[in-house]
Amino acid sequence: MSSVELERDGPILRATLSNPGRRNAITWPMYDALEQLEPTVAGDRGIRVVVLRGAGGEAFAAGTDIRQFTEFTIGAQGVDYEHRVGRVLASLLRIRVPVVAVVEGPAVGAGLALAACSDLVVATPDAVFGAPVARTLGNTLPPVVLARLFQRLGAGRTMAMVLSARLLSATEAAAAGLVSDVVERAPLDEHVDELLARICANAPLTLESLKEIERRVLRDGADAAADDVLAAVYGSHDFRAGVAAFLRHERIEWEGR
């Protein structure tokens, strides 16, 4: 059965996309589970980072499970589907902590959208990214997905990719800025663990504030209002403790308050 398997590993929440035999294609129950990640993290201040990964190591996610589209008989069902996906992506973007996607193999269609909604993407050299719907299904992409791809890949590269229905290699995706690191499979787990450790060692309020300000800048531009975020960080216990520790040349354990 398909599922999103959750594992709490200290301050790390690992969410594994699992749809055996379907290259982790996303089903309706998996979409529902992904939408619950945001409230789960919001309710647990001990979580410092979320990791998205495909089960089995052969694929991140090969889009939506196509078997579900056989239920569609009218256009309104497609509209409802895209709205549903949009709610899931919006919830992922609201997650207060950094989200790291680990991509092995294809991240296609909805899998590409999930990777694009992550803050950092670590990919193996065999990873590929794309949304070749013009060649495969004959459906289309909604504004929320194109907008996020424009932000992460650029409008020109995105349109060239989707209009030609081609897949980007991990190297191309890294050059465009979607992929943070391209790592061979052998040291992949070690690399990811080191990255997660660095994130968890950072000031959580700073990371949360950077994500919130990014959301506002992408929505409103450089004039986005953020005084409330700035005041919360500069008025925090962690900031005062950080200044004191820095001046004493001491290491600090961030408390997130």
Rank of each mutant, 00 (worst) to 15 (best):
E5R: 14
R8P: 07
R8G: 04
P11A: 06
R14D: 00
N19G: 08
G21V: 14
N24D: 03
A25I: 11
T27C: 05
T27G: 07
D32Q: 09
A33G: 01
E35Y: 07
E35A: 14
A42N: 13
G43N: 08
V49C: 03
V50K: 00
V50M: 02
L52Y: 02
G54S: 11
F60L: 05
F60E: 00
A62S: 08
T73N: 08
Q77K: 00
Y81W: 10
R87C: 03
L89P: 01
R94N: 01
R96L: 12
E104H: 14
E104K: 15
A107R: 01
A110C: 13
G111E: 05
L114Q: 01
A116Y: 03
A116H: 02
C117E: 05
C117K: 00
L120D: 01
T124C: 03
P125T: 00
F129A: 02
G130L: 08
A134Q: 15
R135T: 09
R135C: 08
T140M: 09
P142R: 02
A147T: 12
R148T: 14
Q151N: 05
Q151T: 13
R157H: 11
R157S: 13
L163S: 15
A165Y: 14
L168Y: 05
S169G: 11
A170T: 07
A175Y: 08
A175E: 15
V179M: 07
V183I: 04
V183M: 05
D193S: 15
A197L: 08
R198H: 12
A203T: 00
P204H: 05
T206V: 11
T206N: 10
E214W: 02
R216S: 02
A225Q: 12
H237W: 06
R240C: 11
A241M: 06
G242R: 01
L247E: 13
E253S: 06
G256D: 13
